[in-house]
Structure formats: C-alpha cells, structure tokens
Design a protein around this nucleic acid. Structure first.
Lengths: 297, 297
DNA sequence: CCAGAAATGCTCGAAGGGAGTATAATACAT
DNA sequence: ATGTATTATACTCCCTTCGAGCATTTCTGG
C-alpha cells in the first residue's frame, strides 16, 4: 500500500456518555446548559485512552467510574472544526454508581428528555402515534422507507425492539425530523449540540444490549439493594417493563446476587430482602454462553 | 470542563482486518511479508471513516467489501510513532466474499498461523498442553493468575470458550510468551509487527461472537452453497466443530436460506441441495431477539 | 454388488422461559 | 381492631428450544 502523507491538523476529542440511574430514572451527565455531552481533548501522557478517560472523569466528578467501554470513533468530514482541521471523536460509555456530587462541571439529566420515544415503560409514548408516525408517513417516499419506519418504531402492530435506538434516531435524522440535521423543527425531544444526541443513542443501544448478557447493571446499583430496585434499574435502561417473578427467577438461578441478611421497610408492603452483587461471577462468567450447536469433545 | 490545547502532531491510521474463508480455512489479508495488517493514513475528503475504508479496500483489492464494522480505536502512548507524535489507530473488520485477485498489494494467509491455539476443530491443539499451559504455570505467581489461565484456556477440564480470543492473547502477552511484548521468544504462532496480532485477535473475537446472533456468515459465502459448506465456514471461524443435524435445523427453522433448486455432485456422497441466503431477513431480523423477561403489553 | 461418504429426516428428553396463581408480610385508612 | 392496598416471594404449567443421537436415503468408487 502506498504510504501517503497523513491528514494535517488532526484534533482528537474524547466524548463521554456517563450514565447513572437514580430512583428508577436513567441519567446522563451533560454540560453547556444541558445541551452537550462532556468532552475533552486527548492528552498525551496517558497510558491508554481508557485510563485517560477514567482519570479525567474521576477528576471532574469526584466519583469512581465503575465501568468504561469504548463506543465508537467518529471522523466524518462534517465534524471538521475550523479551517482544514479534521476532528476525530472517540466516544465512551461509562457507568457510575452514584451521581456526581458538588464540584461537578455538569448536570445529570434524564436521558428520555432527549429521546422521549424510547421510554415504553408506560406503554408506547403518545409522541410516536401523535407526531412521529404521521410525519414519517409523510416523508416516506418508497414503500421500503415506510417499512423501515414500521419495523424500527414498532408501528402497525410490529413488536417494539428496544435495542434499535440508533436506527430510530438515524431514521428521524434522515427524515429531517430532528433539528440537528439542520432542517427546521424537531418532532420530539430536546436536541443537543453537534452529533451528541446520536452518540447518546449509540450509548443507550449498547447498554440495552449489554445488560442482557453481561452483569453490568450492578455497576449502576448501590452496594445493597432489593430485587425490585434492581428490576426498576433494568426497566429504566431498557425502557420497558419486566415480568417480576420471572425476573427474580432469572437473577437468582444465575446466582448473580446473595442475601445480605437484612431487610428494608417503608416500601409500602412486605419488607424486601437486601441483596448484594456476587463479584465472583465476573470471573466465573468469563465462561459465557454459546449458541452454536456444538458437538461433544 | 477546561478546554486545553490538544495534543500536537496527531497521526491517524486506519487498520483493516479483512477476512475471507476459502475451502474451510479462515484467511486474513496481510502485507509486509505477511507480518502486518494492511493500514493506511486517514485521508480527509471521505464522508466517513467507513466509506473511506471501503473505498480504499476496494481500490486495493478490486473486490467488493461485503460487510464493514468498526472494531476499536487504539491510542496507547507506546504507539507513539516518531518524536512526540501520537498515533491513533482506528481498526476495522471487513468481510469479503472472494479472495482478492491479482493487483492486490497483500497476501491472504490462514489466521490460525498467527494464533494456532485458537483452532480446536481437531480437538485441543497440542501447543496448549505442550507449551502454553506449562509456561503459564511457571509464570503464574498468585493462584488468581493461574485461575485466569485455567478459565481462558479451558485447562483442567474447564470448558473451552472460543470467544475469549483477546483475553487469551493478552494473557500470553502479560506472561511474556509472545515476542511482541519485547521479552524474547514466543510460545507459539507467527508474530506480527506492532500490535497487529492483538488487533487480529480483537477481530476474531468480534466475529466469533457476531455469527451467533447476526447472519454475517453469508457475507463470506458464495452466491449459492451447500449447508455443509456453510457449516464448514462457521466452524472455520469458530474454531470448533458443530453438530451437523442441529446446525441444519437451526439454519432452516430461522429461514435464513432458500433452495436454489439445484444440487451439487462430486462431494463424495449423496448430492447436496444448493441454497442461497435470503437477503430479506436482513430487514425482517431488524426485530431481533430479546432476553429480558418482559411483561405483555 | 458392496463399502464408504454425505445428506437428510426424525425422535427423545432436559432446560429455559413466558405467563399466571397463590400465599406472606407489611403500611395505612377507617 | 379490621379491612384494604401494596409489595414480596413461592410455585405451577406449558410451550419452545436445544443437545444428542438413531435411521434412512442417495450418491461415488471399487
């Protein structure tokens, strides 16, 4: 391959989607009047991107960052900053157990303020039938486009798939229904600067997928918790309700938690046992599940 | 957040892990005497990283790139090129249906040449019991380190988990058993320049996970194929054997393929029906499976 | 014609998961 | 005190999925 001169004037940014769940609401840390995600320049001297981000976030929020995962790297031409400079944005998802206290530069905000059509805990949000569906209908030229809308938004009786967060945002973007695309008014949700709302959508999609096969929810929970609190946390992230008894069976049969021996009162009903996460499973579960029809060794 | 001056002299590279499967062997495109993955500088003027990489690869190999997915972005300090320049490497996984023909800058090479301990199709490779296990045993100080080796490599009767490709490579790296770490001789496998073998491991891990829940295998198959060819392709990627009858049941009940109406002869037994991938499922399967115990709407 | 090799069809049983019923233990209103 | 609302927790039922294997069919090559 020919070695060519690289692009000059590259700027690299780290963008963090920091997530916490408080009282059954999923929160994301925002800055700049709640219109942007926290971001900072890449600094040399960090051993890796991961540790660099962790150090930076912990310095900013004074709270430990439980879990960090790289999301995606964007370098679209329209991300170009000033003249001729190319901007590369490396985005991260971070889960934190507690909300940042004072001294934090940003504000925590419920993520469904930005993507209200993603919260199906109280049934399909009115904004879908009321605004999104008709405007997508009007936009869709070919039948294929409408079918795409039907599938991603669960219209016409199609099942709702909570993982398609990014696909839904991109569909709205293409249809000109979010202000970020530069084409007028948005159909729903608070917009953000640049493509931060898309990055948030990416993060939510990743997290919604991940809680199903890795015990990451616990990174968002306090040390001890009731099973209902855990369930509410999962529901907050997934944006939909969960069958209580089966959820408990799932958690318990996987031996993800152990009883602390204490109970809580004041929840309005029978006192609930308190549980804690069994950190041992992080090592045990290294041997995760397969899905291929293997033959015996 | 304080806006600080960004790192000066950033260089951004694209690194591609191009995969093909030919005659039941997984191949990866290499350059530089088969010691490196193809890489090129990020060029401005491309609409996005994805399209930039696709254009570059297709120009190089004269073959369409079926599927492209971003893998990971590395920017470790030790990736620093010359003086004070920070290198950011954005890696991609690309699946291609055909091997590149003439005019290609690189060479296709079986990926198990680089990671021989990953091929369990003929049982656990001798190199594990013969070289890896004893040398990890000698390296492991604390019991926890040995336990990690036992779990990731499936020692002492632990089940083999084919998805832990990256964890295994990193364990060998930490233990000083690969030449890339700068500590002498490697225990097995052809080394590569820089951290390219780690990137290859990342790609294999991602692909092994992905074939289980997305129909990406078909990106590696010719237009029409027999079910055994498809199975061999999956086995090549997964590095382990699959139960034939159950594999067919899985494929057929998911309606991933349809018969072409033709059959092949000369395979040594009863002629096999030829199938083709039903591209429609790419739209249908947008509604993928869940694992949360949901409540009825 | 016979052995070997694939392809394909079918069955059995264990495990997992969706959905609902039943019972227990608390807070709170009357 | 008593009843009701609310939450916690224990089971049951049933259907689907999936691992594992047997059996049969249809070709190739002596």
């Amino acid at each position: 391959m020919p070695i060519r001169a690289p692009v000059r004037g590259i700027v690299a940014d780290l963008i963090a989607v920091l997530v916490a769940v408080s009282e059954g609401e999923p929160l994301v840390l925002t800055v700049r009047e709640r219109r942007a995600l926290p971001a900072g320049p890449l600094e040399s001297g960090h051993r890796s991107l991961q540790t660099g981000l962790r150090a930076w976030v912990e310095a900013q929020t004074h709270h430990p960052l439980g879990y960090v995962e790289q999301l995606y790297t964007f370098a679209d031409r329209d991300r170009t900053a000033s003249a001729g400079q190319q901007v590369i944005s490396i985005s991260y998802l971070g889960l934190t157990r507690e909300r940042a206290g004072d001294g934090t530069a940003g504000e925590w905000r419920g993520w469904y303020a930005f993507l209200p059509w993603e919260d199906h805990r109280a049934g399909m949000p009115a904004v879908i039938a009321g605004a999104i569906a008709p405007r997508l209908r009007a936009w869709a030229g070919a039948e294929a486009e409408w079918q795409r809308a039907v599938l991603t938004f669960g219209l016409e009786g199609q099942p709702w798939n909570e993982e398609l967060v990014l696909q839904r945002y991109e569909l709205l973007y293409e249809a000109g229904l979010v202000p970020e695309c530069g084409a007028g008014d948005g159909v729903a949700g608070v917009p953000m600067l640049f493509d931060h709302r898309r990055i948030l959508a990416t993060a939510i999609a990743r997290l919604r997928a991940k809680i199903k096969y890795r015990p990451v929810v616990f990174e968002l929970m306090p040390e001890s918790f009731t099973l209902l609190q855990l369930q509410r946390c999962v529901e907050a992230i997934a944006g939909r309700l969960v069958h209580k008894q089966n959820f408990r069976r799932l958690i318990e049969q996987q031996e993800l938690v152990e009883e602390t021996g204490e109970v809580t009162h004041g929840t309005g009903g029978r006192p609930a046992k308190l549980f804690r996460f069994r950190r041992e499973v992080l090592a045990e579960r290294a041997v995760a599940g397969t899905k291929l029809p293997l033959v015996r060794a």
